[in-house]
Nucleic acid binder design. Structure first.
Length: 943
RNA sequence: GCCCGGAUGGCGGAACUGGCAGACGCAGCGGACUCAAAAUCCGCCGCCCGCAAGGGUGUGAGGGUUCGAAUCCCUCUCCGGGCACCA
C-alpha cells in the first residue's frame, strides 16, 4: 500500500505521523529562512543589527561528540528540555542565546582513520553532518550562525592562544591569581623577588634564568611518572584512570612510565575552585564530587630524624598528618614503596632482634625491600587492600619531644601520590595503622581518652582529652593540635600545612587528532610561538599504519613521523634558528574548556571573544554574582573532569582580564538518563528488545522462548536502542518531544517505553480536533466567548503552566495543558477562539511545529510566528473563585466536603461543616474541643 | 566503610512551605458508535468490607512530633550514584 494514501476510515485531516512530518519540515524551512532563532548582540560581529532592550539569557547543552553510530532517543532528552525552556523564555521577553557545537577531536575518529586510511577530518565532518540532520529534525531552535566544532582551524587557533596565555602566566600566591610571566621576570630582575640560590638575577646563566621562569609557569613540562595506556596509544590524566588502574575509556591496562609531559598547574587554583563552589547554583552532588576530588585537608608536616642500623647521618622523614595531636602515639613510621628515602635508609643487615615477621623472609633489608617493591608493582590496587603488609627497613626514627625511637617500615598502604608519601603510624587513633600494628606486633599507645564503651581493639578517632602526651595531656583534640603545632614550629620539627588530593593536570596526549601544542624547543627548553603564528595547523599525516601497542612499548606521538614538521627553522625574534617542535597534542578536554565563550562571537578573528559581547552575555543578573552561562544542562558524568577543567581555564582567563567573571557556568542541571529494558535468553545472550512479546504478568518471550528482563543503558550491546528516526516515522518530532518531556522530572532517570508514546500523540490529536475539523480541515473554533467556568480553568492553567515552565517542570505543565484540553473535548463543541489562541501559545515551547501550524490556521500569516508571540499571562482576578470546596476532618479523619465563600471566616466555615450530614453524624452532638480553618484548604474539628 | 540521592497503584509519575494521596499518561475493564473491527467519545480503575450510603486500611519497615505527616525527627531495610588504605 502507498504509505501516503489515507487508510480506509481515517479522516483525511487527522494529525498523524504523515501530517506531522509535512508540518514539521514546512515550518523548519520557514524558520531557517527567517532566522527567528538568531539572538542579536548589542555589539560585535554576529549582530543582526536589532538593538535589544530585553534581558539576556544564555542557555547551553553540553555539546556532543559526533559519534558515528548516530543518536538514540536518550541523547536528545536534555536538548529538548533546554529548547522548551529557551522557547518559553523567548516568548516571555528574553533575548536568548542558544546554540550547539561539536566536541569533535578525539580517539574514535582517529581509530576510524587507522582502520580505513581515511583522514579523521573526513569521518568527523560526515558524522557532524549526520548528527546535525538528526537534531534538526527535532526542531531545536538553535542560532545556527554560532555553532562551532572544536576541530575547526578557526576554533582551535584560539584554543592554542589560550594555551599560550596559560604558558605565559604564573600564579602569584600573594594575590592568589595568575599574572603575566613578564611580571615575574620583572620581580626577579629588580630583586623584589629573590632569584634561585640567593644570587643576583643578572649573575645567573641564561639556562638558570629560563629554568627559574619555566618552573613558575601555569603550563610547564615535567618529567614525571605518567599513565601510559598502550592499547589507546596515549598517556592519560589521573582523572582518566579508574581506581582499578585501567583506562576509563575502553577499560584497558595502564602502566606507569616516566616521561616529559605538559602539565597544567590546576593545583594552584585548588582553594579558589573549592571556595567558589559555594557561589554556584549547581546540584549539591556535583559540588560534593568536586570537593572530594580537590580533597583539601588541613594538617601538619612533621619531620622525624631517621637513620638505619649502623648509619651515622640522620635523614629527616617528613610525614603528613591531619592529627598532629596524636604525635606521642607514634609507634612506627611507614614510607611508600616508591619513596626516594627508602634507598637511602635501607640497612645492609637486620639489626639484632628483628622479628621474623618484619623481614619478609629475606636475608637482608635490601633484599626484603626489593622483593616487596617487585610484588607491590605486580598487584592491583584491589588486591592490595585485602590486608596490611610491609617490611622493616632496618632503620629507626626519633619522635620529636619524645624519648622513643620507632622502627621505619615500607608498606603499600601508604601512597606516594598523597601527602609526603610517608606517615607516622598511630595505631591508637587510626584504624589502618591499628591493623598494621597488629600484623607486625607493634605497640599501641592511646593518646586520646576513649569513652568506656569504645571497644579496646579498635582505634579511637573521636574527640576527648589527650593522654600519654606530656604537655598535651588534658587538652581536647582541637586544643592539642594547636599547641603541638606551636611547639613543632618553634622547634623546627614541623609546620601547619594544607594538603590536596588533586594533582596537576597532565595535558599531553600522544595522538594525532587533537590540537597541536604551539610550542617549540631550543636547547634550553620550551619557547612559545608568537600569537601571529597561530593557528599552528595539524600537518597531513600519511602514515596510518598501526603501531605495535605492546605492554612494554614506549609512548610515541604520531606527529613525530612527519619529519618536515618535527624540525623547524623560524625567527622568533632573535633571528632564524632551528627548533624542535612539540609533538604531543592537547587532550580532548581542551576544546570543551571554553567553547561557551566562542558561541558568543564565533567569527571574531581579532580576539577569542569581543569583551563587550562577553560582558553582555556572561554578566550575572544579580549584582556581585559569579556570572557565566545562565543555564548549563548535561550529564552528571562530567561532574569532575570537564567542569573542573573549564572552571580552571575560566579563572585563568579571568585573572588575565579576558573574561568578566570568575565562573563559566552559574547554574547547572544534570538531566537524567533514559534507560531501556533489555532481554536476555536462557544462554544469557541479549535478544533484540523490539522482537520481545508478552508482559510483566504473563512473562516475556522471544521466538517462543522465555527471556529475562533487565533495565540498562540504551545501546547496541544490549540490543535495546530506539532511534529518533523510528519515532519521527511513527509519530513525528513533536510527539517525541512531548513524550520525552512528559516522562518525568528533568533530573531523573527513566525507562523508555515505546508503547506509551501513543499517549502523547493522542493528546496532540485531541488538541487538533478541538481546533480543526478532521473531515474537512476547516477550523472548528467558535467565536463565542468562553463561559465563566472555562475562563477560570483557562486562567488557572495559564498560571500553573507558567510556573511549571519557569521551574522546568515540563511533565506537570503538560498534565495541566492536557486537563484543559480534556475539558474542551468533553464539551465537544470546538474550542472558543480565545481559548484556542491561549492554548496554542502555551503549547508552542513544547511542540513548536504543531503550535505554529495551528497558530497560522487561527490567525493567518499576518500574526507572525508563534515562536515570537507572547507567552500568555493569567488574569489574577480570574484565579480566585467566589466559593471554594473545602474538606472537613473530624478527629483527623476526612468526613466530608463543604462549599464555603472564598472569604469565609472560621466561624462561618465551621458552621457550614457542622451542617454537612456526614460531618454532623461523626461529631454526634459532642462538644468541640478544638476547631481550625485553613482558608481554602481544610476545616478541622476535634471532639 | 564514608558522602550524596531515592523508595507512592500493574507501569511512568503527581501532590508548591505539614492540609482532600494517586493529577496527567500507559496498560486494564465496561459502555456508546459500527454489520463487525479499528479509530473516536463516555465511564470505571490502590486494597478490604458493603447492594448502596458509607466504613476500614494504605505512600519501603518500625517508632515519634502534630488537630493533621508521602512531606518534619529518630532507628532500620533495600535500590541508585560518588569516593574509598587520602594519613
Amino acid at each position: 500500500m502507498d504509505a501516503t494514501a489515507p487508510e480506509a476510515g481515517i479522516p483525511p485531516h487527522r494529525y498523524d505521523a504523515a501530517l506531522a512530518a509535512e508540518i514539521e519540515s514546512r515550518w523548519q524551512a520557514v524558520w531557517d529562512a527567517s532566522g527567528v532563532y538568531q539572538a542579536p548582540d548589542p555589539a560585535g560581529a554576529p549582530s543582526s543589527g536589532r538593538g535589544s532592550p530585553d534581558p539576556k539569557l544564555f542557555v547551553m547543552d553540553m555539546f556532543p561528540y559526533p559519534s558515528g553510530s548516530g543518536l538514540h532517543v536518550g541523547h536528545p532528552l536534555g536538548y529538548i528540555a533546554t529548547d522548551v525552556y529557551v522557547r518559553f523564555k523567548r516568548m516571555s521577553g528574553f533575548n536568548v542565546l542558544y546554540t550547539m557545537g561539536f566536541d569533535a577531536f578525539g580517539l574514535p575518529a582517529e581509530e576510524h582513520a587507522r582502520q580505513t586510511g581515511q583522514h579523521p577530518r573526513i569521518n568527523t565532518e560526515a558524522n557532524i553532518d549526520n548528527m546535525r540532520r538528526q537534531l534538526d529534525r527535532l526542531g531545536l531552535g538553535h542560532d545556527k550562525r554560532r555553532g562551532v566544532a572544536t576541530t575547526d582551524v578557526d576554533y582551535y587557533r584560539w584554543t592554542q592562544w589560550i594555551f599560550l596565555q596559560i604558558f605565559n602566566s604564573w600564579f602569584d600566591p600573594e594575590s592568589r591569581r595568575a599574572r603575566p610571566i613578564s611580571e615575574l621576570v620583572d620581580e626577579f630582575s629588580s630583586g623584589r623577588r629573590p632569584a634561585p640560590g640567593g644570587r643576583a638575577w643578572n649573575e645567573l646563566s641564561e639556562a638558570e634564568r629560563r629554568g627559574a621562569v619555566d618552573s613558575h609557569r601555569l603550563a610547564y613540562v615535567a618529567d614525571a611518572p605518567v599513565n601510559w595506556c598502550p592499547a589507546l596509544g596515549t598517556v592519560l590524566s589521573n582523572e582518566e584512570v579508574t581506581n582499578e588502574g585501567r583506562s576509563e575509556r575502553g577499560n584497558h591496562e595502564v602502566f606507569e612510565r616516566p616521561l616529559k609531559q605538559w602539565m597544567m598547574r590546576i593545583t594552584a587554583y585548588a582553594d579558589r575552585l573549592l571556595e567558589d563552589l559555594d557561589r554556584l547554583d549547581w546540584p549539591e552532588s556535583v559540588k560534593t564530587m568536586q570537593r572530594n576530588w580537590i580533597g583539601r585537608s588541613e594538617g601538619a608536616v612533621i619531620s622525624f630524624p631517621a637513620a638505619s642500623f649502623r648509619q651515622l647521618e640522620m635523614r629527616p622523614i617528613e610525614v603528613f598528618t591531619t592529627r598532629p595531636d596524636t604525635l606521642f602515639g607514634t609507634t612506627y613510621l611507614v614510607l611508600a614503596p616508591e619513596h626516594p628515602l627508602v634507598d637511602e635508609l635501607v640497612a645492609g643487615a637486620w639489626p639484632a632482634g628483628t622479628p621474623d615477621s618484619w623481614t619478609g623472609g629475606a636475608a637482608t633489608p635490601r633484599e626484603a625491600v626489593a622483593a616487596y617493591r617487585a610484588r607491590a608493582s605486580e598487584l592491583s590496587d584491589a588486591d592490595r587492600s585485602d590486608s596490611k603488609s610491609g617490611v622493616f627497613l632496618g632503620a629507626h626514627a626519633a619522635v620529636p619531644f619524645a624519648d622513643s625511637r620507632v622502627p621505619v617500615f615500607v608498606a603499600d598502604y601508604v601512597l606516594m601520590g598523597y601527602g609526603t608519601g610517608a606517615v607516622m603510624g598511630v595505631p591508637g587513633e587510626d584504624q589502618r595503622d591499628r591493623e598494621f600494628a597488629e600484623a607486625y606486633g607493634l605497640p599501641v599507645v592511646r593518646t586520646v581518652q576513649a569513652p568506656p564503651e569504645h571497644p579496646g581493639e579498635l582505634a579511637y578517632t573521636g574527640d576527648g582529652p589527650s593522654i600519654n602526651s606530656r604537655f598535651l595531656d588534658g587538652l581536647d583534640v582541637e586544643a592539642s593540635k594547636a599547641l603541638i603545632l606551636e611547639r613543632l614550629t618553634e622547634a623546627g620539627f614541623g609546620r601547619h600545612t594544607v594538603n590536596y588530593r588533586m594533582r596537576d593536570w597532565l595535558f599531553s596526549r600522544q595522538r594525532y587528532w587533537g590540537e597541536p601544542i604551539p610550542i617549540v624547543f631550543d636547547d634550553l627548553g620550551p619557547v612559545a610561538l608568537p600569537d601571529d603564528m597561530l593557528p599552528l595547523e595539524l600537518p597531513e599525516l600519511t602514515d596510518w599504519a598501526p603501531r605495535a601497542l605492546a605492554r612494554d612499548s614506549e609512548p610515541e606521538p604520531p606527529l613525530g613521523r612527519v619529519a618536515a614538521w618535527v624540525g623547524v627553522e623560524t625567527d622568533l625574534g632573535d633571528g632564524p634558528r632551528r627548533y624542535r617542535r612539540e609533538l604531543n597534542t592537547m587532550p580532548q578536554w581542551a576544546g570543551s574548556c571554553w567553547y561557551y565563550l566562542r558561541y558568543l562571537d564565533p567569527r571574531n578573528d581579532e580576539a577569542l571573544v569581543d569583551p563587550a559581547v562577553e560582558l553582555y552575555w556572561m554578566a550575572d543578573p544579580e549584582p556581585g554574582g559569579v556570572g557565566g552561562v545562565d543555564l548549563y544542562v548535561g550529564g552528571v558524568e562530567h561532574a569532575v573532569l570537564h567542569l573542573l577543567y573549564a572552571r580552571f581555564w575560566h579563572k585563568v582567563l579571568y585573572d588575565l582580564g579576558h573574561v568578566s567573571g570568575p565562573e563559566p557556568f552559574r547554574r547547572l542541571i544534570n538531566q537524567g538518563y533514559i534507560q531501556a529494558y533489555a532481554y536476555k535468553d536462557a544462554r544469557g545472550v541479549y535478544v533484540p528488545a523490539e522482537e520481545v512479546e508478552g508482559s510483566l504478568r504473563e512473562g516475556f518471550t522471544h521466538g517462543g522462548q522465555p527471556v529475562a528482563r533487565e533495565l540498562g543503558k540504551m545501546g547496541k550491546s544490549l540490543k535495546n536502542s530506539v532511534t529518533p528516526d523510528d519515532m519521527y516515522a511513527a509519530y513525528g518530532a513533536d510527539t517525541l518531544r512531548l513524550y520525552e518531556m512528559f516522562m518525568g522530572p528533568i533530573h531523573q532517570d527513566r525507562p523508555w517505553e515505546t508503547r506509551s508514546v501513543v499517549g502523547s500523540q493522542r493528546v496532540l490529536q485531541r488538541v487538533w480536533r478541538n481546533v480543526v475539523d478532521e473531515e474537512t480541515g476547516a477550523l472548528r473554533v467558535t467565536d463565542e466567548a468562553p463561559d465563566d467556568d472555562l475562563l477560570r480553568l483557562l486562567h488557572r492553567t495559564v498560571d500553573g503552566v507558567r510556573a511549571d515552565m519557569e521551574g522546568m517542570r515540563f511533565n506537570t505543565a503538560i498534565a495541566k495543558l492536557t486537563e484543559l484540553n480534556n475539558e474542551l473535548t468533553r464539551r465537544g463543541t470546538g474550542a472558543p477562539r480565545e481559548v484556542a489562541d491561549v492554548l496554542v501559545r502555551m503549547l508552542a515551547p513544547l511542540v513548536p511545529h504543531f503550535a505554529e501550524e495551528l497558530w497560522h490556521r487561527l490567525h493567518g500569516d499576518g500574526a507572525g510566528s508563534v515562536t515570537q508571540a507572547e507567552f500568555p499571562a493569567a488574569d489574577p482576578a480570574l484565579l480566585a473563585d467566589d466559593a471554594v470546596e473545602v474538606p472537613v476532618q473530624v478527629n483527623g479523619r476526612l468526613r466530608g466536603r463543604v462549599t464555603v465563600a472564598a472569604d469565609a471566616d472560621e466561624e462561618a466555615a465551621v458552621a457550614a461543616a457542622l451542617a454537612e450530614p456526614n460531618v454532623a453524624a461523626h461529631v454526634g452532638g459532642r462538644e468541640l474541643r478544638k476547631q481550625l480553618y485553613v482558608p481554602g484548604r481544610m476545616i478541622t474539628l476535634v471532639v
